[in-house]
Computed example of a mutant assay.
Amino acid sequence: MNLLYAGKTKDVYEGEGDTVILKFKDDVTGTDGVFDPGANTVGLTIDGMGQSGLRMTTFFFEKMAEHGVATHFVSSNIEESTMTVKKATMFGNGLEVICRYRAVGSFYRRYGQYCEEGQTLDAFVEVTLKDDERNDPPISKDGLVMLGLLTAEEYDELEQMTKQISGIVKEELAKRELELYDIKLEFGRDSAGALMLIDEISGGNMRAYGKDGYVEPLELEKLMLA
């Protein structure tokens, strides 16, 4: 396959027609060996994480299709750790959209003066620019519009889709007595310019807790797909 881009947790290869192929790696984001879905560096490697993440991503993208949510998903090959997806046009060099139900991670580090760690949040949505050199800075709706990355209408749709998608994930976790604390999503435009969910939905881009505390990504996927 012709490699188009080598990413932190996935490599992108050329596919047939209007598709590309994502190869899932065993690397996850974090800092100093500690997993963090919001981090912009690879923090550790977990054996089996690639296939596990792909299984969970396939599960959730199929759930999104049942709910009428537009995604880039076409098909997956678990044995090869690959997923075929529609090509997407990025917003600038990419945006990350985080939906938060609890004050943890970078939210608490920034705003801890005004909240307790683990405090309940009402599906708080924040957008950051994918920019490793600047540590993925947060940006507001007005900033995104002024910089020409998206329109005000697209932002409103992106926020609504984020809450809908995150709510679906939260409900699925709750069926297994797990609580979603936060989740990181990515979006792009399809060939017609419509918004769609891209990238993945796996233990590597969310925090979940059970009755015994934090659930590691691999364990989360075992619980979800048991």
Results as ranks from 00 to 15, higher is better:
T89R: 15
F59G: 04
G50E: 03
E62S: 03
L158F: 07
S81M: 05
Q119D: 14
L223H: 00
M90D: 00
N77V: 08
F124I: 13
E216Q: 12
G7Q: 07
M196E: 03
T45V: 12
M146F: 00
M161F: 04
I46A: 08
G213H: 04
S52C: 05
K211L: 11
F73G: 01
Y101H: 11
Y111K: 11
D136Q: 10
G53T: 06
F124T: 14
D199Y: 05
D212V: 02
R102M: 11
V12F: 08
E16A: 14
A88K: 04
E221T: 09
A88G: 03
R207K: 11
G203C: 03
V74C: 05
L129K: 08
L185A: 06
A65W: 00
M1R: 14
S106W: 06
L144N: 03
M1F: 13
Y111H: 14
P138S: 04
L129D: 00
V97R: 01
N2S: 13
G33H: 07
T45G: 07
I21P: 03
G50W: 04
A152G: 15
K222Q: 14
Y209A: 15
K23H: 14
G143P: 00
L225P: 07
M90A: 15
Y5F: 14
G203E: 00
V12K: 11
V127A: 03
E179A: 09
Y108T: 09
V215Q: 03
G203R: 04
E153V: 10
L149S: 00
H67T: 10
L150H: 05
P37C: 11
V145E: 02
G7A: 10
Q113Y: 13
L147Q: 15
D11M: 08
K10V: 08
F61H: 04
M56C: 09
Y155T: 02
G68M: 07
F124W: 12
L129Q: 06
E79G: 02
K211I: 13
N77F: 11
E157D: 14
Y13H: 12
G148E: 06
K184L: 10
M83E: 00
E186M: 10
P217M: 04
L197T: 04
M161L: 15
E179W: 01
N93Y: 09
Y101T: 05
S76N: 09
T45R: 13
R109K: 15
R109T: 14
G38M: 13
Y214F: 13
G193N: 05
G50T: 09
T41F: 05
R102F: 10
R176K: 15
G143C: 01
I78A: 01
V12C: 14
P217H: 02
F61D: 01
M56Y: 06
E66Q: 15
V28Y: 01
S81T: 12
M90C: 06
K170N: 09
Q160S: 12
G204H: 06
G210F: 02
K163N: 02
I139M: 14
E153A: 14
D199S: 07
F124E: 13
M64I: 08
D182Y: 06
K25F: 07
R55L: 05
E159N: 05
Q113A: 15
I168T: 02
K63Y: 12
T41E: 11
E96P: 06
K141E: 11
V85H: 07
